Computed example of a mutant assay.
Amino acid sequence: MRARSWTMLGGAGVVAVLFFLFSVRPGSGGPASPDDAAQRGQGVSPSSATETPPRRTPGTPPAEGGEMSPHPYVGMWVTADGHIRQMLLANGRYDEARGERESAYTGAYRIVGTRIEYVDDTGFSADGTFDGDVLHHGGYVFYREGSDAHQQIREGR
């Protein structure tokens, strides 16, 4: 009977279970709320808190009223040719466009240190690694839009 219950969940149910598993804080006994995620810096471990964070996305206003600013990796990441554009949202979701196709892939992400883990809404999972304003993910190299690294690659340097 238990195996049938999992089968009956279908794709959306599996995604919900995976999202729950990614959102549970160790030792909390339950899922983290979006407010908890913001306060935690989207899963940044205490050991990585001493690292120098990358620059914020240009044009991102500072947090108001003493609130913590969004995780430093939140913002738009693009391939050198601009064909793939991935927006990392402050709420732990991402929206990826490919060419003319907006929202080609959407899902949840979690950042621990310089590693990002994705679970898209169909249940597919992937990961990547940040190196300052460069993100290596799925065989692609993404650049923080507007960063020095992005400008240099666009100018062919």
Rank of each mutant, 00 (worst) to 15 (best):
Y140G: 02
D127A: 09
A126D: 09
G128Q: 05
V141N: 08
L135V: 14
F142I: 09
Y118Q: 04
G128L: 04
R110C: 01
V119S: 02
L135K: 01
D120H: 02
F142C: 04
R115I: 01
F124W: 10
G128W: 02
S125Y: 14
F130K: 02
A126R: 06
R110I: 06
T122W: 01
D120N: 15
G139V: 07
V134E: 03
T129N: 10
F124Q: 06
G113P: 06
I111A: 00
Y140M: 11
I111V: 15
D127C: 07
Y118L: 13
D133M: 05
D133W: 02
V134T: 14
E117W: 05
R110N: 05
G132A: 15
G139Y: 03
T114V: 12
I111F: 04
H137A: 15
D120K: 03
G113D: 15
T114Y: 07
D127V: 01
V112N: 11
D121C: 08
D127H: 11
V119T: 08
Y140T: 04
T129L: 15
R110H: 10
Y118D: 03
L135Q: 03
G139R: 08
D121A: 11
G113Q: 09
R115G: 01
Y140H: 14
Y109K: 00
I111D: 05
V112Q: 15
D133R: 03
Y109D: 05
L135G: 04
V134A: 04
D131A: 13
E117V: 11
T114M: 11
V134S: 02
R110E: 04
G123W: 05
H136F: 15
S125E: 11
T122F: 02
F130D: 01
Y140D: 12
V134Q: 06
G132Y: 06
D133Y: 03
H136W: 13
R115A: 10
D127S: 12
I111Q: 05
D120P: 00
